[in-house]
Design a protein around this nucleic acid. Structure first.
Lengths: 220, 220, 220, 220
DNA sequence: TATGAATGAGGGTTCATTCAT
DNA sequence: GATGAATGAACCCTCATTCAT
């Protein structure tokens, strides 16, 4: 039974998952970074489910209360970390999506893109852990997860150029398929420790997607 | 087995996840079934994370302690349910994998197979919930999950017939790809409530896999 | 943000405020009594607001979890204590409300009743503290508070006999007045440590109520 | 003043509950007013228990620290608000207590007085909330609550004129009775939203008090 | 063998007050 | 003086597993 707190958006539990306050001073930014760094470490060490606010605070060497200075609740910390991680991700996709090249040599573009994404995912082992954790977390909506939003957007933008004549509904299904398949293989790949095995898996993903997309470009 | 999440990073269980003893007496079997039935219901109603031993016992109308008569811990209950659910799954794959047909009309066989799997997954809403829950559960190893084992085995058996000349290592990669992709799309499909949307997604999966496998059958 | 627990009535926070389970075994009853005794002591020592589940458990020499074996939440403990305390209260009012005497010598009956209530309230210093606390507690509805319900019922039953010809609506107002006035003076009285002062206050209450009721019995 | 509820049974505040300093500069006065206004709004919106210093500062658009420039602690803010609200209250009682009229037509005076008090209490919904909150607040002594003090004073002054021959001790008891009864019924009345019901309750209070006082004026 | 009350560390979150800037 | 981030003990409640009966 909760202290009947009427609905305010301040210190509330059902608050939006955006940071409470974007710190402008150096110290504040440092602390937010410390919180996010600590969270990233713990995600890798303990896994998504096992990260607690207590652990985060301990690792960041701050009191628990300070987490709640910057975030309305635990999940907002995850979201913020995801957002920070997703910046680089956004840059990749932006960079590779020059429309003019996409159609003529779309196979190459796709290859480069997939390689870049793998590089990105491997650049920080916390990324796939958090991504996978957030995607299945019943406490939040997928739209809050930055990578997911970006990846979905990008997928559909890519397909819009590649399959301009396909009806929107159909393209939505194709998009979901491409997205789901890529996500699944990327996560597997990240769990693989041997680089050559990762290379092999990436190759299969390329083959798979190119075959699938080629099929939809030719006729049906 | 740890109480809740202790301070360690150990993700493995201390007890084997097999049932403590296979009940031979009528009552024991009934109780195990009641436990498993209750668990299945609760998985659908509450989701994987939220199922507790207390809930299971209450729903099964038995005391909590009795769960521990038959299972070493909570996860063993899940595993047992997965095993029970996977029996039917095994029957499907067995039935459809008559070697003689597989090569000549493999495309058709694959279609039938995928359809049968979808039927199976939809036959009990607890199946995808549990499957997905177990796959990402840090408390246990994937090998303990019966469907996973069967599905992997079947995938490789299928590929062994379809791509007999492919080197084992390569086939392992292809198998993992096929498996991961199928699993991902099956899960999406199960979350879709509209039958026609499910049909569309299934179609895409067929196209995707057939294109991919055809690629590997023709030479490289 | 709460672990999205779907609505069950088992271990939930918004559970009804009745005890989870009425212990039938000796030990269970002992523990419930220990919890209730501890709560009563703490109410007197610390006041309503300052009683915490931690304090209760400590005082009762049991772990916190045990409280939740018997009660769904903190407020249910209060309610249970109130109910236990209210038993004796019910007995008083029952005993004194023999209808035949009530009308002829209602003044005397009222005097005896008020005296009995004072005796009751003073019999355990926790009673007025808890009563007052519950009555203003926003976490629960007044109907859950046993004394309140009994006292209101009794007041109206008494008035129904005394003022049979008064319209119900009017009698409701009179009843509320009598109730509010009595409650207020009883609480004051209980805060008074000197017995003779309590006696004086009780006298005033008698005079007050008898004057008020006499007014309503004669004509208007 | 303790941080939250510490482990002690001390119910008294460590700091005097008077404003830290009376702001003489324009800005200071504005800020104090803003704090008090914010508190009044929040009392109505959230209730006494749920008002926090954070809320007050936010609503008043000042930093939390500034509250502590003007007030030693949270309760002093409440006290100050009560004092501000009580000014108007003082004016009512002053106005109505012309000694010459009081004795001859004391019934009328009392009626006017009670009506004026009701008007006052309803003039700002924060008044009854705060009054009731402070009265049962273990953190402070009743004497600090301005209305309480004024009301008590006035009650006794009134009675001193009405019952000049009564011994002081007796009059103290009568005064406490009158006070407690009036307070209780006023609070009920304020919780009533229907104006006609309020009117009825007010009538009962008039009847009640006049009967009671008449009793003490005639003889005994 | 069967029971289910007992356990208690751990979970997320709050908030009055302080004090370095 | 003015600020508002920092503090951290305290709050209520959970639940997998055990073990006395």
């Amino acid at each position: 039974m909760k202290k009947r707190q009427t609905d305010k958006g301040d210190h509330a539990s059902d608050a939006p998952l955006v940071p409470r306050r974007t710190p402008t001073q150096a110290r504040g930014r440092q602390r937010v970074d410390a919180i996010l760094d600590a969270t990233a470490e713990l995600l890798v060490e303990r896994g998504f489910e096992a990260v607690t606010t207590g652990h985060i605070a301990e690792r960041a060497r701050i009191p628990v209360g300070s987490i709640y200075q910057y975030f309305p609740n635990k999940y907002a910390v995850f979201i913020a970390l995801a957002t920070r991680q997703a910046e680089q991700f956004g840059r990749i996709t932006t960079m590779l999506s020059r429309p003019e090249t996409i159609i003529v040599r779309w196979g190459e573009v796709l290859d480069r893109l997939l390689e870049a994404i793998v590089d990105y995912l491997l650049s920080d082992p916390a990324i796939p852990v958090l991504w996978a954790g957030l995607v299945k977390c019943p406490e939040l909506r997928l739209d809050d997860v930055e990578y997911h939003a970006k990846a979905v957007d990008y997928t559909f933008a890519f397909l819009a150029q590649l399959l301009p004549d396909m009806p929107d509904e159909k393209r939505a299904v194709v998009g979901m398929t491409v997205y789901a398949v890529s996500e699944a293989l990327f996560f597997r790949l990240c769990q693989e420790s041997a680089p050559q095995k990762r290379q092999l898996l990436l190759n299969e993903l390329k083959v798979l997607l190119k075959g699938y997309l080629a099929y939809h470009m030719n006729g049906d």
